[in-house]
Deep mutational scan, measured.
Amino acid sequence: QVNQQQLQQLMDMGFTREHAMEALLNTSTMEQATEYLLTHP
């Protein structure tokens, strides 16, 4: 289960819902999730 607010923040940054969910499931903080998305295009 992912934090919906964090998911929305990542989608607002331009990431897809699927990619943002993957990042949130594989990390524990927003900072890590953002870094994950930038390093796993």
Rank of each mutant, 00 (worst) to 15 (best):
M21S: 14
L38C: 10
Q4N: 11
L10W: 00
E18M: 06
H19A: 14
M13P: 00
L24D: 03
T34H: 15
R17S: 12
H19L: 12
N26C: 13
H40R: 14
Q5W: 01
A23T: 01
G14P: 00
P41T: 11
L38D: 14
Q4M: 08
L38I: 08
A20C: 08
L7P: 01
L37D: 06
M13W: 03
L25C: 10
T34M: 03
D12F: 04
H19N: 07
L7H: 12
Q1R: 09
L38R: 14
M21A: 14
D12A: 11
L37A: 14
P41A: 06
M11A: 11
L25D: 13
T39A: 13
L37N: 07
H40A: 14
L7G: 02
Y36V: 08
E31L: 05
M21V: 12
E22L: 04
L38S: 15
M13T: 14
Q6C: 01
D12K: 15
L10H: 02
T34V: 03
T27S: 10
R17W: 02
T34F: 08
H19G: 14
Q4D: 13
Q6R: 05
L24G: 02
E35H: 09
E22D: 11
G14Q: 06
R17F: 02
P41H: 10
M21N: 07
T39I: 04
F15K: 05
H19V: 14
M13I: 05
A23R: 01
L25I: 11
T16W: 01
E18I: 03
Q5C: 10
Q32G: 11
E22G: 10
Q9K: 11
L38H: 15
Q9V: 04
E31Y: 01
E35K: 14
Q32E: 06
S28P: 12
N26V: 09
M11G: 04
Q32F: 03
Q4P: 03
Q8D: 07
L10Y: 04
Q8M: 07
M21F: 04
L7K: 03
T29P: 01
H40T: 10
H40E: 14
A20Y: 00
L10D: 01
Q32M: 06
R17V: 04
L38A: 15
Q5A: 10
V2E: 06
T16K: 13
T29F: 00
N3D: 11
M21T: 15
E18T: 03
A23L: 00
T29D: 11
L10A: 05
P41D: 00
M21K: 14
S28N: 12
Q8S: 12
L10G: 01
F15M: 05
P41Q: 15
L37T: 07
A23C: 01
V2P: 03
L37H: 11
A20M: 00
E35S: 13
E22F: 05
E35T: 10
M30P: 08
M11V: 12
M21C: 07
S28L: 05
L38G: 14
L37K: 11
L7T: 11
E22N: 09
Q8C: 13
Y36M: 11
T16P: 08
T29I: 02
Q6F: 06
Q1Y: 01
Q8V: 05
Q9N: 10
L37M: 08
H19C: 12
T27E: 04
Q6T: 07
M30C: 11
Q32N: 11
E35W: 14
Q1T: 08
M21R: 14
L38N: 15
Q32T: 08
A20T: 12
H40S: 13
R17K: 12
